[in-house]
Simulated scan of single mutants.
Amino acid sequence: MNSRRPDSKLSIVTACYNEEANVELLYSRVRAVMETMPYAYEHIFIDNSSADATVSILKRIAAVDANVRIIVNARNFGHIRSPIHALFQATGDAVISIVADLQDPPELIPTLVRNWEEGAFMVLCIKRASEENSLVFWLRKQYYKVAERLSSIETFQNFTGFGLYDRRVMDIVKSFGDPYPYFRGMIAEVGLPFVKIPYDQPSRKFGITKNNWYTLYDLGMLGIINHSRVPLRLAVFAGFIGAAGSFSIAMIYLVLKLVFWNTFSFGLAPMLIGVFFIASLQLVFLGILGEYVGAIYTQVQKRPYVAELERVNFEDIKA
């Protein structure tokens, strides 16, 4: 608990990509909140090689506010590697992750800090409701339920990463050495005392979401394969069940043929349906196996999270 001194420092980390319509408003709202609190702070923005004016806006802000630090990536390193790199650059006694699109309300920061002051190592913001498309929100909830049932550890449903993490938590997460980390799952792995804060997620005010089907699929698969071997074992069980079913059907056909030798016909339809069914199962489980192999391949490569193009306002931090 030594980090919770009055002179402690807070780090707020925001990953952004083409968020020119949001970053200045987010900065202003965070600054307004932090001015009411007794802590020194830094607000780290990591830009994933935006094609709009995001970087120029951030540089203008950083020129007049030394609390704002900027990391500009050399290229787009994706929605997994870029945010975690910024989190590991934070120097505060507690680190707060908050997205650039204003769907994580900065006004919750005092609540997060208060719970941290009271002894929580992690303060997790859990979506109680959302102004996003109701069908999308429902589908997300169903995914979280499935992922938790498959997982070998307790996971946090409706948790997007928005929250506060003590320095001890960040040091543990960093020690994992995962080159393609699923941060939400790593937080669940840590197991230190935590507090859940329910909140209602507002809709995006400006711009469009940068998530697409692929990024959502990527996150979804990471959330499952990082914490469960159930999909692999399902393949084994499906093989046993398929073999037993095929043998039973074969015996039934044999008896029917022997009893009704002159009138019973096998027909091609059952054979074709069976072949396509087995082939589809093979492709599904081959894909699942490929996901695990791909995860292992990524671990073996051990590439850095990002390559930085430049930094702004990090001069006071020792390399």
Rank of each mutant, 00 (worst) to 15 (best):
V64T: 12
D65G: 00
D65S: 01
N67F: 01
V68I: 15
I70Y: 01
I70L: 15
I70V: 12
V72T: 12
R75A: 13
N76K: 04
N76F: 02
F77N: 10
F77I: 06
F77A: 09
F77H: 11
G78H: 06
H79L: 14
H79E: 13
R81V: 08
S82H: 01
P83T: 06
P83E: 03
P83K: 02
A86M: 04
F88Y: 11
F88V: 01
A90I: 04
T91V: 14
A94R: 05
V95I: 15
S97L: 05
I98E: 02
V99G: 05
V99N: 12
L102D: 07
L102C: 13
Q103E: 13
P106D: 03
P106K: 00
P106I: 05
I109M: 12
I109E: 14
I109W: 11
P110E: 11
L112R: 09
V113L: 12
R114I: 07
N115A: 14
W116G: 07
E118V: 08
G119K: 13
G119P: 08
A120E: 13
F121K: 14
F121I: 06
F121M: 14
F121Q: 15
I126G: 07
I126D: 03
R128C: 06
R128D: 12
S130I: 10
E131R: 08
E132W: 01
E132P: 00
E132T: 03
S134C: 09
F137N: 00
W138M: 01
L139F: 00
L139Y: 00
R140Q: 13
R140G: 08
Q142A: 10
Y143P: 01
Y144V: 00
K145S: 00
A147C: 13
A147R: 05
E148M: 12
S151V: 02
S151D: 02
S152V: 12
F156N: 11
Q157P: 08
F162N: 12
Y165M: 13
R167Y: 05
V169K: 09
V169F: 06
M170W: 07
M170Y: 06
M170A: 07
M170G: 07
I172M: 09
K174W: 04
S175P: 02
F176V: 11
G177P: 11
D178V: 09
P179G: 12
P179W: 08
P179I: 14
P179T: 14
